[in-house]
Structures are given as structure tokens and as C-alpha cells.
Design a protein around this nucleic acid. Structure first.
Lengths: 337, 337
DNA sequence: AGAAACTGAGAAAGCGTTTCCTGAGCCGTC
DNA sequence: GACGGCTCAGGAAACGCTTTCTCAGTTTCT
């Protein structure tokens, strides 16, 4: 005899075995008190015998909830989104929710459709779509509610928003380099269309405005290691002494590229990253960066969603101010010349 | 008038608007040809007007499939599992499947329950549970089918298995160090209970057996950066010249720790990792490691699952042999005594 | 012309639950 | 002893869809 029945038994089988109606089994399973203890225990025994567990699909259909939330990110290969996702996942798990993930693969055109499709299988969605056009987003958000948006403005909707303040975060980085004596700096920019790149640019413009003695050039780069790595050659001969990389990935690629070229960091060139990904403190030299609490962003996203799902008022939107994390990749400007 | 109706309309609303029966709408939506073209277009128009999309839950319930697969990993913070998950996710997405993810948070006791619960919401599951007891796994797998197991033996079941050959993979690493002249080596071991740690140990034992002139010590360490970082002090003064880290994370931590202590890599000490995570080539120096195609492992896992879901015979189990990736973190043993 | 075959739409069953409603049985009260 | 009020189990509707069955109407064949 099979210890564990092959196919999950439906509730009707349990009802039959226990000699009661389906409704009664349901009541027992849902701890509805209005059931005779004697019958209840008979039902429970039958349920155990048949290894019964309610079909979550059927349950969801009638209950109108799935205890699942969707999370859509642009790229699962990016440590930032990975951490964010982990934050959501762990926080949601504590409340018994599972998560359905997808990356839009940077394909903006499919993003809306993907989001809607995922949303329909779930109770809510965490959306991270830095490049989606504002008007598209405005159309999309109402159809997605309850939803929480990460790292961008909610386009006039009431969607809770959690952001990192890239604009404010980049300034201390530039100030830090300035304080070390750097007067020729370059910003390795990411995707010019992304909201967070624009924010960094704004922050740097403010820096430039207050530091007219400093040259600060923007250089097209990208957002991945490879981009930073490739940029190394251009940087090495450029005369820039302080490099603000778009993010830690780019900074690490740059660090690696510079090392190959024999350029010393921070003696010859100082490099800063952004995000403070888990590995940032273990590069050689450890990376000076602006720390963004991405995991917490994810956790807070879940908290907002959870409130929404319970029809409560979600906590206030918050804009996390990145924290300057000074490590070994920055140092005083070289005195040679 | 609302451009997009608030609540998704049920199929009955479409039927009513189009003046046909629900069955007809269903037939139209599922491209069943036996519908008058004139009626079909009327139905389609009604569907568009109401912004109709079939409820996936209801659809799943009647169809008995969800076009979703579960994936359970021990730790979402680990780049290896992240890449694996990405492999599964991207491959499954191409076939229109979504993925439900969870990390068991290293809590082995809950793992079975979690797996079963997730599995019930999906059509199949990819299981990555390196530390689950063999007998538990043997009980679990039949209840999970269709399933694919990653990086461990299927305990006598017919579950397809995809593995990396850690045992074979670690030897070339040791041989490589040996070839560079290293005769005093240490293995920084991970979790002694994990299958993949045991495999590495076996591989190293074989190496030792064939190289009696080489000292190879096993040192308790761990699997994260921090572990490697903390181990640096012990390693620095030890006299070991070749260090085999459990994985790239540990190696990177070690690299960072050694750099802080002023120990030069590879001049003073050579370090190897394992896995070839995306960042491994961008450390300074770039990490010599054994490359494991984790993304492909994930993709292949999906392929097996997909075959199983179509009741086809899945491709053969495969054991990926890691490839030695020589980079800058290893070099000839120092000639000083 | 009549039977057979075909077309295509509606009715209904079913997927596995939960929950509302109904009503049988019991207790207590007047 | 009849009746109101409880308690508690079963019936049935509902969730939103797919699919099989049925059948009316039309076409084709002899």
C-alpha cells in the first residue's frame, strides 16, 4: 500500500471517506468551530489517510486571493535587483506569501503586457521598470493596483513609491573626491534613458555649479562590468583623476581594467561606485561607494503591499538617502605633474 | 467613460455584450475554428471593448495546468543560485512559463513542506537542496514529480538530475597549483554537510594520493565572503602557498583580506576559487577558478521539465565538468624559502 | 424527395473550493 | 404539549473558465 497517495485527493474524497458532506470537511479544514468534535476528528483522520491538502487554485478562485505577489525587474543578472527581490521575497515569506518573478529582459515594449499578465495571477505586484515611458506607466499603474513602485515616480497615481535618492547620493561622492584634491573628474554614465541616470546627472550638475574650479565630464559607458572594463583604456590616458562610475559593477570592471593596464588605484586614479553591492567591500582595493539599502527597499515594498492587501493605509513613501561609504578605491590626488 | 474598465470582466459579460453564449466566446478566444467568422469578430470586438482577458486561475483550474514552475533554492543571496534561477527563468519564459521562487533560507526542516506547497501551485518544480537528508529526499521526490534536481543525486528515483562535477573539477585546480610549484596547499572547506563539499574533498583526496610530495590541509571556513576574509589572517602566516577556496565568494573574501594584510597575490600566495561567478574575472587579480555553467544548468533544468510536462522523455542526465579558468590569482611559487 | 452527413451554437457538466441558506433535531420555556 | 430558539450538517450556489454533448438547421447524396 502506498504510504502517500499518488494524486492529491479532492475534498470530496475526504467527505466520502468520513461519511460527511463536502461543506463539513471544508469547515473542519478552516477551523470553523461549528462542527461536532467527534465528526471533526473523523474528518481529520480521513484527511490524513488520504493525504489531503486543499487545492490552492480552487481555493484562490473562490477566495479571490492567491497569497502570491509578482515582482518584475529589468534584469535578474544585476545584483541590485537580485537583492531587492530577495528583500521582497523574504519579507513576503514571513507573511506566508510566495513570489512570482520575471525579468523583462530590458525589453521595454513587452513590459506592460508582462506586468499585467503577472498581476492577474497574483494579488499584487512590485514593479521595477526604470525605463518605461512616463505616460505608459501612468496608464499601467491603475490596472496593476495594488502595486508598489521602486525607484521611480508614480506618474501622478496613488501608487506607493520607494526610491533611492540618486541625485542626493551622488553629490557626497563628488564632494569626497573634491576633498581629496581631485579637480578633473569623469562620470561614467549608464543608460541615458533611465530615471536613475538622469538623477545622478542632476546631482552632479549641482556639484558642478558649486565647484566651478572642477572639470566634470560625462562619458557614455553602460551599466555592466564589461562596460567599465572597456572604459579603462580611455580613462587611463585621459588625465582624469577621479572617476565616478555609474554603479559598482562598472566601477569593478574599471578597477579590473585599470589594474591590467598597470594603473594604480587609488594612487594614480580614484574610483567610486554606486549601490554598495555585497561584493563592493571585497574588491581590491575595496570600493568607495554610495550605499543604497536595496534589500530594505524590497522589504519595505512588501510592507506597503501587505498594507494595501489588508485595505490598510500603507506607510509613507520614502526616499532613501544613500550613505557615503569610503573605502580604499579613493585617495588623495597624485601630486606629480 | 473609462478607457479601461476597472475590474477585469468575466467571460459572461463578453458573451452578453456580443449576444452569444459563453461557450462561443470561449471557442473564439481559444481559436477554435468552428465559429462563424462574423460572430467571431463580433465577440472579439466585445472582448476588446470590455478589455477582457481570461482569468488565469479559472483557466488553470479547469485545464489542470498553471504554466508556472516552482524553483526552490537554499539561498537567494548566493550568486550561484541566482544565476541558476536566471537560467531557469529565462528558458521557461521563452515557452511562456513563469516562475515561482522561494529560498528555504537554509532551514532544512521546512524545505520539504515548502517544496510541496510550492509544487501544488505549479506544474513542476526545480529543486536545489544540497543539504537535505537523502531519505527525506527519497520520500519527497515522488510527491514532487515532475521535478528536476540540481546538484545532487536523485536518491534512486527517476527524477532527472543536472549536476556539476565538483569532484572532477577540483583536481585540475590542484594540478594547476602543483604545476606552478606549490607543494604546501590548503583547502578552505565550506559546509561539511553539503554534498558538493564532500565531492571536492574526494577530488582532493585523489590528488593527494597521486602527489605524495604535496601537503594539502583542509581548513574549516564557510561559504561566504566574510568567511574567506576572516581566514586571511590564518592563511597569511601559515606558510601555505596555494589556497583552494571552497568557492569564488570565499576566494574573493580571502583576496581582499590578504590585500589588507599586505600579502601579494599571486606573488606570495596563489588563490583559486570555484564556480566562476560573473565577478570572478573582474577581481584584482582576476580569479583563477573552475568554471561551472550554472546558467546553463538552469536552462537545461527547464528543458527537462518541459519535456516531462509534455509527457516526453527528458534528455539524459548530465554532469557538467567544470573547466579550469586560469587567471591572475595564481602564479609560480615564490622562490624564497 | 427523403435520408444522411455536416455545421455551428447553446446547454450543461465539471474543475475543487468556500459560504450562504435551509432545515432537522434538540433544549428550554410557558 | 406546543412553540421559539439553538446548534450544526447538508444542499446548492458561486468563483470563471473549458469542453463535451445535444440539437436545430442546412447541405449533400441517392
Amino acid at each position: 500500500m502506498a504510504r502517500t497517495p499518488r494524486k492529491p485527493a479532492p475534498i470530496s474524497a475526504v467527505a466520502e471517506l468520513a461519511g460527511v458532506s463536502v461543506s463539513t470537511v471544508s469547515r473542519v479544514m478552516n477551523r470553523n468551530a461549528t462542527v461536532d468534535p467527534e465528526i471533526a476528528s473523523r474528518v481529520r483522520k480521513a484527511a490524513v489517510t488520504l493525504n489531503y491538502a486543499p487545492n490552492p487554485l480552487a481555493r484562490s478562485l473562490v477566495l479571490g486571493k492567491t497569497t502570491t505577489v509578482a515582482i518584475l525587474v529589468p534584469d535578474l543578472a544585476n545584483p541590485t535587483f537580485q537583492s531587492m527581490m530577495r528583500g521582497v521575497s523574504r519579507a513576503a515569506a514571513k507573511d506566508g506569501y510566495r513570489i512570482l518573478v520575471a525579468d523583462s529582459g530590458e525589453i521595454a515594449s513587452e513590459e506592460s503586457i508582462l506586468a499585467i499578465e503577472m498581476r492577474r495571477r497574483c494579488d499584487a505586484i512590485v514593479l521595477c521598470a526604470p525605463r518605461m515611458a512616463e505616460d505608459l506607466l501612468a496608464d499601467l499603474l491603475p490596472a496593476l493596483a495594488p502595486a508598489v513602485l521602486i525607484n521611480r515616480d508614480n506618474a501622478g497615481t496613488r501608487t506607493p513609491v520607494l526610491t533611492a535618492d540618486y541625485e542626493a547620493g551622488v553629490r557626497p561622492l563628488a564632494e569626497h573626491l573634491y576633498g581629496l584634491g581631485h579637480r578633473r573628474m569623469a562620470f561614467l554614465q549608464g543608460n541615458p534613458e533611465s530615471a536613475s541616470n538622469a538623477a545622478r546627472l542632476r546631482g552632479l550638475a549641482q556639484f558642478s555649479a558649486t565647484h566651478p574650479d572642477t572639470e566634470l565630464t560625462t562619458i557614455e559607458c553602460g551599466t555592466a562590468f564589461e562596460s567599465g572594463h572597456e572604459a579603462a583604456a580611455e580613462i587611463a590616458g585621459s588625465g582624469y583623476t577621479g572617476i565616478l562610475a555609474f554603479n559598482d559593477l562598472v566601477a569593478m570592471g574599471l578597477l579590473s581594467g585599470l589594474a591590467e593596464l598597470g594603473v594604480r588605484v587609488p594612487e594614480d586614479i580614484s574610483v567610486t561606485g554606486f549601490d554598495d553591492i555585497p561584493l563592493a567591500r571585497y574588491t581590491t582595493p575595496p570600493l568607495t561607494t554610495a550605499s543604497v539599502p536595496v534589500v530594505e527597499l524590497g522589504e519595505q515594498a512588501w510592507l506597503r503591499l501587505h498594507a494595501l492587501l489588508r485595505e490598510e493605509t500603507p506607510a509613507f513613501d520614502v526616499n532613501y538617502r544613500p550613505r557615503l561609504e569610503v573605502r580604499g578605491s579613493t585617495g588623495p590626488v597624485a601630486s606629480r605633474r
